[in-house]
Amino acid sequence: MVRVLMMAVLLAVGVAGGATAQGFPTRPVSMVVGFAPGGPADVIARLIAPSLGADLGQPVVVENVGGAGGSIGQARVAQARPDGHTILFGSLAQATIPTLYRRLSFDPLAMDAVGLVNEVPMAIIARRNFPATTLAELVGVVRRDGRALNLGNAGVGSTSHLCSLLLVSSIGTPVTLVPYRGNALVMNDLMSGTLDMGCDQTTNNAEQIRAGSIRAYAITTEARATALPDVPTTAEAGLPAMRMSGWNMLFAPAGTPRPVVDRLNRALLAALRDENVLRRMGDLGSGPASGERTTPDGAQAFWRAEITRWRPLIEAAGQFAD
């Protein structure tokens, strides 16, 4: 009798869960971005939101919950009801938070990946009148002047912060790292000449590079960026150890029913086929993700591998956020 009752309860729970997944979404979906409006993650999130909403049949509303290197936004999603109506438009920050922040109010690993959205080249950049015209010359200036030079980033744990750490490690000479409260502030100071250097996603600097407002020395990916075909790769420019990509990924709270995760994934794949999305990504020097990493399982594996990759660099730098 007890066994029959247990089976009945399990069946009822399964039916209820299936019904919830089948009816998803029943209201607008909140897509949280852990950074301020106007930054690289926000730009791509707002680009794909209409396509996601069209496929889901409910609006997808971008909600900026910035601060603490993206951890506040992640906490907002991690602690939300796991029904798919609150999701995270994550970035490389989600691979650094588990190492950078050792006292958090939530488990930074308690997230279910939905799928990789895109990958973005990073550009090594400097103020327009910086005394170097090539990457080799920039490396020479850095090795000569060291901490007298300022290298700006969008805050501890941001993609530009990681790019800065990797650049300093690749050159082998420390400089003064300057954290800002967002990418836009870094760009403002680069264009005004009050900041020496930066290392940021092409989604945040391609237009300024093309306009000549700042200098670009190299792209950190294997191939040149389509939006900046005249800018060499770091391998071409003589710094092959400097290799990385920024990325964005959709996450749901841990425990979200797999049918809901799969439904979100189908909407993401539809968005990545949208011609407007593809065209605008190309303009920004980015490109849609493809292959296994666009699946929930593949994205989860990629995310965990990125955590493992960046942990030693962060620990060696000793720049913890707490």
Score class of each variant (00 low, 15 high):
Thr194Ala: 12
Leu109Tyr: 12
Leu167Trp: 04
Val114Ala: 01
Gln300Phe: 01
Met111Ser: 07
Ala95Pro: 00
Gly157Ile: 07
Ala54Arg: 13
Gly14Asn: 03
Leu116Arg: 09
Tyr217Phe: 12
Asp42Lys: 01
Pro50Glu: 05
Leu11Lys: 07
Ala16Asn: 06
Leu195Arg: 05
Asn204Gln: 15
Arg309Thr: 14
Val13Ala: 13
Ile124Cys: 06
Gly291Thr: 04
Met6Ser: 05
Gly238Thr: 08
Pro40Leu: 03
Leu92Lys: 08
Val15Ala: 15
Ala80Lys: 04
Thr173Ala: 12
Pro259Gly: 09
Gly34Val: 02
Tyr217Arg: 09
Gly318Glu: 01
Met1His: 10
Asp200Thr: 10
Thr176Ala: 14
Gly53Asn: 02
Gly70Thr: 00
Pro28Met: 06
Ala316Gly: 06
Gly318Ile: 02
Leu313Trp: 04
Leu284Phe: 15
Ser105His: 04
Ala299Asn: 01
Arg266Phe: 00
Pro259Val: 08
Glu119Met: 14
Ser245Ala: 14
Ala252Lys: 04
Gly146Lys: 06
Leu162Trp: 09
Arg263Thr: 13
Phe130Asp: 01
Gly23Ser: 11
Ile314Asn: 01
Gln79Val: 02
Thr134Gln: 14
Phe35Val: 09
Gly115Gln: 04
Thr194Ile: 05
Asp189Asn: 11
Arg144Gly: 07
Val32Asp: 00
Ile219Ala: 04
Thr233Arg: 11
Ala93Thr: 05
Val260Cys: 03
Thr173Met: 13
Arg102Val: 12
Gln94Arg: 08
Phe89Met: 13
Thr295Pro: 04
Ile171Gly: 05
Thr294Phe: 01
Ala123Val: 11
Glu292Cys: 08
Pro108Ser: 07
Glu275Arg: 13
Pro179Asp: 04
Ala45Thr: 02
Thr176Ser: 15
Leu177Pro: 02
Ala16Trp: 14
Val261Cys: 10
Asn150Met: 14
Thr176Met: 14
Leu104Ala: 02
Pro25Cys: 03
Pro257Trp: 05
Ile124Arg: 06
Val65Cys: 01
Val60Trp: 00
Ala95Thr: 08
Gly23Leu: 07
Trp310Phe: 14
Pro121Phe: 06
Met31Leu: 12
Arg3Trp: 04
Gly212Lys: 12
Ala19Thr: 15
Val13Ile: 08
Thr26Met: 10
